[in-house]
Amino acid sequence: MATPVLDKAEAASAASPYITVTLRIRRFNPEVAAEPHWEDFQLEMDPKERVLDGLNKIKWDLDGTLTYRRSCAHGICGSDAMRINGKNRLACKTLIKDVNPGKPITVEPIKGLTALKDLVVDMEPFFQAYRDVMPFLITNDTNEPTRERLQSPEDRERFDDTTKCILCAACTSSCPVFWNDGQYFGPAAIVNAHRFIFDSRDDAGEQRLEILNDRDGVWRCRTTFNCTDACPRGIEVTKAIQEVKRALITRRF
């Protein structure tokens, strides 16, 4: 009889949370082949584990050549943004059970930036755009402050959302305008400009607005909301971009 055997198997699977997961990873090593290719890895994983745990298992136990960035592994450092099942996410914040583990889970480097090896991309254009918006406090008074720069809770609230950015590039590399030629500043740079433009303690808002008024600035935004969907910190990115556009037209910020 097949029934007792079946029962036993079901009981075993109920006791062990592990399932077999296939990670389909886009491998690329310029020293071996000019073309990237897909490679499948079968893993025994708890569905409550994260995609990053799967990558670690592969790197530590199966194939040490797998290359990816990760640092804090808790969604703060912004190192491990990647395209998982076609969507930009942080591997350390994505649970296996949430990405349809019944089918192979595809893992690719983020789009629009040059893949250097496997899941590692050249982030330099992204950080160049970030540096271009001058993401630091600029004040008109040249003297060293003798006391704290005070700010009302209402003034702080205006840019609260955009302080959450961890510079993971999930938004910028989900933006179809950025995919095209990479000259567009990208959502992340605009978010970080927004953080200072709307800060009452900062005096260089006008300058930053001029930078974003560029041909490759905020006017290239097509409000497709890909950035808002992609942001692992839940920042309303498109809203921030629209606020910068409004500030450019009304010159009130």
């Binding site: 629009g112 040059t114 893949a115 050249d122 271009d132 990479g182």
Partner: peptide, 9 residues
């Protein structure tokens, strides 16, 4: 290469 183009600003 059908890879994403390197971006240089």
């Amino acid at each position: 290469l059908s890879l994403d183009a390197p971006r240089s600003r």
